[in-house]
Design a protein around this nucleic acid. Sequence first.
DNA 1: CTATTTACATACATTGTTGATTGTATATAA
DNA 2: TTATATACAATCAACAATGTATGTAAATAG
Lengths: 209, 209
Amino acid sequence: MVRRTKEDAERTRLQIIEAARKTFHQCGVSRTSLEKVAAAAGVTRGAVYWHFADKAALFFAMRETSLAVIDRADAFLFGDESGDPLDAIEQSMVYFFRTMSTCPAARETYEIMSFRCEYVDEFASVLQEVNRPCVEFQAKLTTAYQQALALGIMRPELDPDAMALDSVSFVRGLFNNWLASSPGTEWRDQVEDMIHTHVALRRITPPRA
Amino acid sequence: MVRRTKEDAERTRLQIIEAARKTFHQCGVSRTSLEKVAAAAGVTRGAVYWHFADKAALFFAMRETSLAVIDRADAFLFGDESGDPLDAIEQSMVYFFRTMSTCPAARETYEIMSFRCEYVDEFASVLQEVNRPCVEFQAKLTTAYQQALALGIMRPELDPDAMALDSVSFVRGLFNNWLASSPGTEWRDQVEDMIHTHVALRRITPPRA
DNA sequence: CTATTTACATACATTGTTGATTGTATATAA
DNA sequence: TTATATACAATCAACAATGTATGTAAATAG
C-alpha cells in the first residue's frame, strides 16, 4: 500500500501521533523507539521519518496536538467578568480538572510530560513549556484577586499577589497529586471540593459555618 | 590499582553513588550509561557492577543515601509540641526548604526524581516512593490542624482535614515550582514568605493587618 | 604459609537504535 | 499522457549499551 491522497497522509500523521502518545505513555519517552511507534501506528519507520525529523519533533507535535484543548482554560477566567471574580477563579480551576478528566489524550500527555520524560538535551525546553502556563495563570489570578478585593468580596487583609502565588502552588500541587494518584482513588473525586475550600478561604463570609 | 581494604571499598561505593547523582542529573537517568558513571567515579564498569546489580539498584542506593537528611523534616512537626501548632507547621515547611537549599545532594536527587527519570518498568515504583511522604505529611498536618482548632488558634469554621489537603497540595506545588525555577530566580527567596502567608490564612488573628 | 575470597579490570557477545539510502507506486501538474 | 514530486516501505551499516565471563592481585582467614 503506497502513495495516497493528502487527506490520507494527514490521517497517517495523526495515527503516528496517537501511537506515539500511547507508546510514550507505556514505555517512557527514551525507551520508545520509532520502530515501536511505527508498529503501533501500523506503518514502518520510513513513514515516521517522513513525517517527523526525529523523536523530539514527534514529541513536540504530540504535545501541541493533545494540549490544544487546555489553552482555553484560563481564557475562561475572564469570560465570566459579569459575576464574582472568586467564582471565576474557582470555575477556571474546576474547568481545568474537568477537561483533564474527560480528555484522556490531554491527561496522558501531561502524565508523559510529568513522569515519563527526562528534561535533558532536546527536551530541556519542555520544562520551560510546563512552567510558562503557570506564570501566565499566576498573572491572571493576581488580577482576579485584585478585582475581588476591590469588590469587597475578599478578606481585606489579604494581598492579591500573595494569594495568587498561594493558588498557583496549590493548583500545581493538586494537579501533580491528581496525576500521580491511580484512577479510582479518593483524590480524584475530592478535587472540586478542595478547590472550593481553597477559594472559600479567601472570602469575607465564612463558607459553610 | 587493585584489591584494597574494606574501608577503601566503601569509599569507592560512595564515589560511585556521587558520580551517579551527578551523571543522572546532567544526562538524565536513561541516557546515563554505567560506563559514564564509572568514568565520572574514576573506576571501570567492573567496579560499578561489583557494587550494584544494575542501573536501577544504583539509582535506589543513590536515592536512599541522598534523602536520609529529609526524613527528619516532619519529625520536626511534633518536636515543637510546647508551642503553637500552626507555628510548628510553618517551621516544618521552612525546615524542609532550608534543607533543600543547603544540601545540594538532596536537591539534585529530587531534581532527578522530578525531571530526569521516567517512571516505567523498574522505576515505576519510584512514583509511589515520591507519593508516600506526601500522604504521611498529610496525616500529620491533619493532627496538627486539629490541635490548632482545639486550642482556638485556627479559624473555627475551617475543617482540619480540608486544610491538610490544601496544605499538602500547596507544599507539593511550591516544591515543584522551586525545583523547576532556575537558582537565582525570585521564587527561591519568596518561599518562606509564601509559607508564612499560607499558614497565616488559617489563623484567627489577621496576619499583618 | 597457603588457600580462598574480595574488589576490581578487561574482553566479549548480544541486542537495540538510529538515520541514511534505495525502491516504488501513486497523485498531480503540465 | 508524461514527468515529477509525494508518501511510504524495505534494507543496511554503524554505533552504543548491556550483562556476563574471565583474569588477577591484594587482603584476609585458617
